[in-house]
């Protein structure tokens, strides 16, 4: 099987984000493999181990995203594709067209995994658009996966104490989230080996996709943290009595 994993190069989730130029951010922060994509890489590796074949990491990002391709290959994967763009944000529709084209030109997928969302722009829709472009079924927020006889069975938490079990005909797109597997952090030999794995680099422009430009980022604004918390002093009983009074009368969030 040829299994692709779409991986995004995103700022560390603990990094401070500084908005610059009204709709961009200062990129001088640490970048990592999008956290949800780690579960996707883990599941792709398990599938290929069971069925045979190869795992291909596909990343659309700036040239600096090579670090993320290598980091992803250290977690799992046989080779990589880095599609380079100068844009800081590429909207989901265009991303999905580019990924679909790159995957098709590389040989086509028997299965595609990705994280259910990116930790930076949180669009939550690239999996769906990618699947539509390739005529594949899709399910995201997946916490359980199995594969047999050309069918994937996935599970997703749907709230209210319930879980959906979905059957999809392969090839399909699976959007992974936490709970799907335990992320195995790479050891030094994995990291060394990953440096030698082949990575095919290309420019996004060479794929010649026609994006419609469906979502325009008009502005990005910093959200200030709350400050000046009211600290409630006194004995435990005094503190909680004051708290209940404040929640009822001042904040008006309790009846």
């Amino acid at each position: 099987m040829r299994v692709y994993v779409c991986v995004k190069h995103v700022p560390d989730t603990a990094a401070n984000i500084k908005v610059v130029g009204g709709s961009g951010f200062d990129e001088s922060v640490k970048f990592i493999v999008n956290p949800y994509d780690e579960y996707a890489i883990g599941e792709a590796s398990k599938l290929v181990k069971a069925e045979g074949g190869e795992v291909v990491i596909v990343t659309l990002g700036k040239a600096s995203a090579m670090t993320t391709v290598r980091a992803a290959l250290a977690i799992g994967g046989d080779r990589g594709i880095l599609i380079k763009t100068d844009k800081q944000f590429v909207e989901s529709d265009e991303t999905a067209l580019i990924l679909a084209k790159a995957i098709e030109e590389d040989g086509g997928a028997d299965m595609i995994f990705a994280g259910k969302q990116a930790a930076d722009s949180e669009g939550m829709q690239t999996c769906y658009r990618l699947a539509a472009n390739l005529g594949m079924p899709v399910a995201t927020e997946v916490i359980g996966f199995s594969y047999a006889d050309g069918k994937a069975i996935v599970e997703r938490e749907i709230g209210g104490g319930e879980r959906e079990v979905i059957e999809m005909t392969a090839p399909c797109v699976v959007g992974a989230t936490k709970g799907l597997n335990e992320v195995k952090y790479p050891k030094l030999p994995d990291i060394m080996k990953a440096k030698k794995k082949p990575v095919n680099e290309m420019d996004a422009g060479s794929l010649k996709v026609d994006a419609l430009g469906l979502v325009e980022l008009v502005s990005l604004e910093q959200v200030p943290e709350r400050s000046n918390a009211k600290m409630l002093e006194g004995s435990v009983t005094e503190a909680v009595d004051t708290l209940v009074k404040l929640l009822r009368d001042e904040a008006k969030v309790l009846d």
Binding site: T13, D120, E122, L214, V215, L217, V218, Q222, V223
Partner: peptide, 14 residues
Amino acid sequence: PYFAGKTEATLKLS
């Protein structure tokens, strides 16, 4: 929200 609530984005849809 973008970046896990550290920033807010205004998006124009078409």
